[in-house]
Amino acid sequence: MQFTARQFAPSPHWLAAARTFTRDTLRRWNLGHIADDAATIASELVANAVQHVQPEPGTAPQPIWLALDRRDTSVLCIVFDTSSTEPTLHTPAPLSETGRGLVIVQALSEDWGCNIEVEGKLVWAQISSACR
C-alpha cells in the first residue's frame, strides 16, 4: 500500500496541478494504465472543492488537499476541503455548461462518496487498478 497527499494553495492552476500530481504519482506506482481516468476524477473533485470553498470577502481562500491511497486492487482519490456542503449528483440540462463533474466521477470510478468531518469534508472516488 502507498499513500501520498498534496496541499493546493489557491491558484488559477489548481486543476492542472491536480492532474499532473495524480498522473505523475500513478506512473511512479506503475499504474499508468489508470492515470488518465484518475487525473480526470481528481480534477473534477478539486473543481467541486474550489467552487465550494470560495472565501468570504476580506478572508483568505482555504487550501484544498488531494490524496491518493493505493490499495490492493484500487486507488482512492480523496479531496478535502473546509466546506460542509455535500456534493449532489444530478442530471444537468442538455445545454448546461456546468454540473457534469460528479456524473464523470461516477462513470470513471467503481464507487464514490462523501464523509463530513469536523473541519470540512472528504470526497472520495475508488478507481480499480486492474488492467483493462
Results as ranks from 00 to 15, higher is better:
D36T: 02
W14M: 14
L45A: 04
D69Y: 14
C114Y: 02
L26W: 06
R28M: 04
N30Y: 06
R132T: 14
I78G: 09
E56S: 14
E117D: 11
Q51L: 12
F3R: 15
R6L: 11
W112Q: 00
A18C: 07
A47P: 13
T73F: 12
A9G: 11
R27E: 05
H13R: 14
S129D: 08
S83F: 05
I116H: 02
A9N: 15
N48C: 09
T22C: 07
A130L: 13
R132L: 13
W112C: 01
P55Q: 08
R6Y: 11
R6D: 00
G101L: 02
K121A: 12
W29D: 07
L76K: 13
A16T: 11
G32K: 00
Q51I: 09
D111M: 07
L15G: 03
R71E: 13
P92I: 08
H13D: 15
A35F: 09
P55W: 12
A93C: 07
V50W: 02
A35C: 01
I41T: 00
Q126N: 14
P57I: 07
V103P: 02
T20F: 12
I64P: 01
V118W: 10
W65T: 14
A35D: 09
F8K: 01
P92W: 01
A17W: 09
E44N: 05
L31T: 01
T91D: 03
F8P: 04
I116C: 03
S83N: 02
A38F: 01
R70S: 12
W29V: 02
I127M: 10
E110T: 15
S109P: 04
A42N: 07
P87T: 07
P12I: 09
E110P: 08
N115E: 15
I64G: 01
E44A: 08
P12K: 10
A47K: 12
W29C: 01
D24A: 11
D81P: 03
A16M: 10
I104G: 00
H33A: 09
Q62L: 13
G120W: 04
E119I: 11
G99M: 03
R19S: 15
